[in-house]
Design a protein around this nucleic acid. Structure first.
Length: 277
DNA sequence: CTTACCTCCTGCCCGC
DNA sequence: TGCGGGCAGGAGGTAA
């Protein structure tokens, strides 16, 4: 499940592979991957546009083209494969970008959860476009305790759910939310109305920390992430609680527990992360 | 304005 | 061994 660091890794890898290439044709074999516009318009408009630059916001990958912006969200299992020459399509490949130099970029998505949006460059992604509902990145100086406090006002959801909510902060998914909760000694089910100002500052600080460290290690590779674009994640060796059920907490040696919070598989240390009631 | 629930999909795990 | 059922999981949509 690609979160901010994994998408950043994909973005950096793709920059070396497809920057300045011009699209000759696009094949789409699973229509629901394309959120907007219609599949026919999507394919047609992409033709003859070149990749001017790549960007990322939260977990969204952004390709700046000549006239449009292509936004790709990998959701659970989306990944890219790049080939120098025409390559047979794997059964889980649903979108193929063919470039004029003969190379191809294949979008592979086992569960077909990923989405692509194509929007005009004339619209502002953050005020009118598909990213308008998103919150700040944890690195953003505007993402301070006051900001979080205002976002959480009148809300009684769990910390886990709040950190998964991309309209509050972008970039954290199930893995890194568990890590941040542990680093802040917060039980993931603690409701946000019980958080102190210190907790909010701690959350921002540790979200920055965990994301920066994961980016530097190329992201987290859980299971065999067989993409040839962004494969080398090593952060899985640094995880403090996620995927560590029954293993010793690094602080107190208590066994890490896996439970359900906000309907998500959630790992935490029952000793270091006491729930507040 | 909330929060809760449904949907999309497939591979995998479990029990029989 | 083979089969069916249940389940996980981002985020958009919708209902209450």
């Amino acid at each position: 499940m690609p979160e901010l660091p994994e998408v950043e890794t994909v973005k950096r890898t793709l920059e070396h592979l497809i920057l300045h290439k011009t699209i000759k044709a696009v094949d789409v074999t699973w229509d629901n991957i394309i959120y907007e516009p219609s599949v026919n318009e999507f394919k047609k408009r992409l033709c003859d546009q070149s990749i001017q630059s790549l960007d990322r916001y939260g977990k969204y990958l952004i390709l700046n083209l000549d006239h449009d912006i292509l936004i790709s969200h990998l959701r659970m299992e989306g990944k890219f494969f790049y080939y120098e020459k025409a390559h047979p399509r794997n059964k889980h490949v649903h979108v193929v970008f063919k470039f004029y130099d003969g190379s191809e970029l294949h979008y592979h998505d086992t569960r077909k959860f990923g989405k692509m949006n194509l929007v005009s460059k004339n619209i502002d992604l953050f005020t009118d476009g598909p990213l308008k509902k998103l919150g700040f990145e944890p690195f953003d100086p505007r993402a301070d305790a006051d900001y979080l406090s205002s976002k959480l006002k009148n809300r009684r959801i769990s910390v886990k759910q709040a950190l998964l909510d991309q309209s509050i902060l972008v970039g954290l998914g199930n893995i890194y939310v568990d890590e941040v909760c542990f680093m802040c000694a917060l039980h993931p089910a603690t409701t946000v109305d019980l958080l102190t100002r210190d907790d909010l500052e701690c959350i921002i600080l540790n979200a920055q920390k965990v994301l920066e460290k994961a980016i530097n290690l190329g992201g987290t590779t859980i299971r065999s992430y067989q993409s040839n674009v962004g494969v080398t994640g090593r952060f899985q060796n640094e995880l403090l609680v996620h995927m560590r059920k029954d293993q010793a907490c690094h602080i107190c040696k208590t066994s890490i527990v896996k439970g359900q919070v906000a309907k998500r598989g959630t790992y935490y240390c029952p000793h270091c992360q006491k729930e507040r009631l």
